[in-house]
């Protein structure tokens, strides 16, 4: 989804920028556009609030995942056992 030059963006575009912003991937202009929309759009505000909450929750939970190499290793070993 491309955001055009207009400072006023649609709700869909706002959500798109908001998602990007959660990962710090939105450009400054995009953030400005988002903030303008946030001033007058209730739906965007609600979405933004929810989105930030989700990000914070994931951050505080300190989630761990197995590395992909470890997973591959596990898969290989499982296969070995399976073929026996």
């Amino acid at each position: 989804m491309k955001t055009d030059n207009n400072l006023f963006i649609s709700c869909e575009q706002a959500k798109y920028i908001c998602d990007k912003n959660q990962y710090g991937d939105a450009s400054i202009i995009e953030v400005i556009k988002l903030n303008i929309r946030l001033i007058y759009c209730k739906a965007t505000r609600a979405y933004s609030k929810k989105n930030t909450k989700l990000t914070n929750v994931i951050k505080t939970s300190n989630l761990q995942t197995l590395s992909s190499s470890k997973k591959k290793d596990m898969k290989n070993q499982l296969h070995k056992k399976l073929s026996k």
Partner: peptide
Amino acid sequence: ASNLWVIIHRARTAMA
């Protein structure tokens, strides 16, 4: 990239 963001958006909505 936009494909990715759409997927992320759906995932985030479902997660929330």
